[in-house]
Design a binder for these strands. Structure first.
Lengths: 231, 231
DNA sequence: AAGTGGTCTAGACCACGCG
DNA sequence: GCGTGGTCTAGACCACTTT
């Protein structure tokens, strides 16, 4: 475990334990250095992590303050967690519509930079607290994810992938608003031409290799999103 | 000018000048240290900045590589502005529907944490390359932005605010998908009940004080969005 | 084993904010 | 002007990747 990560985790726990809210001030750097018994740079780096996560903001010459917006049921679009980790309080389930090992469709070859021979194609309906959340069509390289079955796909595929020891790095997401087709509408239990947000995303390993591409169509009444921007 | 910012800017310019694309490798750290005549830590910090902006990714023990997805006309929801060159191509204009100095509406008091006596209310239709992009209703604290007029509102209010020397810090954004009301539809030149993405956002100064709250309703055919997540 | 990036430290100095 | 956070450095050591 990295020292600054450890310190960041402890600080976050402390903030929650102390019940700090928007605008509350953290101890000064020298106190934090003493408390966690690390050098100034490590504290600075830990604070930078928390700032990036949107938990605090820092003002030079003044102090470090807590940032805590209301999050409710909003899906955080920045966490690379495929939202399962984010929604701890909520129950995420999925109904698997189909799961096959196939040769990659033409457009997948583009997303995977040509470097792909075989993929798992998974189509699911995902539920948040028993409400229909979204329709998802995803493709995983079998060279990275060698095995998948329906039982795994009923839970969080990303959690499963992480448990395999696969290190997920960064992602690109493209958002569009559309009118639902008849088929999509039926699956989401909405009328035809109802509005929907689609998010098309490519996930990369920490090595920079693309391994997952998916297109998700969200139920416009049950899905709300949140983005925290930092400086 | 901060050293690591300066180095980051120069590196970005170099990447563009060299025409590097996805997966291309940057020189090793020792070479970068020599080239920019700074210490290792400064190079590391500059690279961290570029990584956060989604321009590169780093692999321990291997190297630093360029990350360059296709951005087209997508609006970047994080403010990373990727490659500065990509943003220059487009023309942003606005038609001002109304601009008034008023007492803050009830819900604004909540967004501004009660700390507000008077606001500018601005309603605009914004255009991207002469296409209708969105409908925007925004509120600025007059204690922070003491003056606004129609001419300023026809351009970028944020650029104007920055030119006043006001330091914009972070923001919270909430996204929802809706069906357009008759009134909204007319302004966006779309049929009633057409789909739309709304983004409700609060902007804060670097001091942590909220100074702007706005609700934007995007034209579902003309607006596309992009998010780059990093590790 | 060699090479390359990542972490961590102590300490000097800088820049902002507040009284 | 004092206190606080931010930058920057040199160097030791660690961890991962490549050969």
């Amino acid at each position: 475990m990295l020292k600054y990560d450890e310190v960041a985790t402890k600080m976050e726990a402390q903030i929650i334990a102390d019940g700090l809210t928007q605008g509350d001030k953290l101890p000064k750097l020298t106190e934090l250095m003493a408390k966690y018994a690390v050098s100034k740079s490590t504290i600075v780096k830990a604070l930078a992590k928390l700032e990036q996560r949107g938990l605090i903001y820092q003002i030079q010459g003044s102090g470090v303050f807590v940032r805590r917006p209301k999050l409710d049921e909003h899906i955080n679009l920045i966490n690379n967690n495929g939202f399962t980790a984010d929604m701890v309080k909520h129950k995420m389930t999925a109904k698997v519509l189909s799961l096959k090992k196939i040769a990659p469709p033409k457009d997948m070859i583009k997303y995977f930079n040509g470097d792909v021979k075989e993929v798992y194609e998974v189509k699911r309906i995902r539920y948040l607290d028993d409400q229909i959340l979204c329709l998802e069509e995803s493709y995983f390289k079998t060279s990275v994810v060698p095995f998948l079955n329906e039982q795994i796909a009923q839970g969080s595929i990303f959690n499963y992938v992480r448990e395999l020891g696969i290190a997920i790095g960064f992602s690109d997401k493209y958002l569009n608003v559309i009118e639902l087709s008849k088929k999509e509408a039926k699956l989401l239990e909405l009328p035809e031409k109802a509005p929907a947000l689609t998010i098309e995303e490519t996930y990369y390993l920490t090595s920079g290799e693309a391994f997952d591409h998916s297109k998700t169509t969200y139920h416009f009444k049950n899905a709300k999103f949140f983005i925290q921007s930092t400086t």
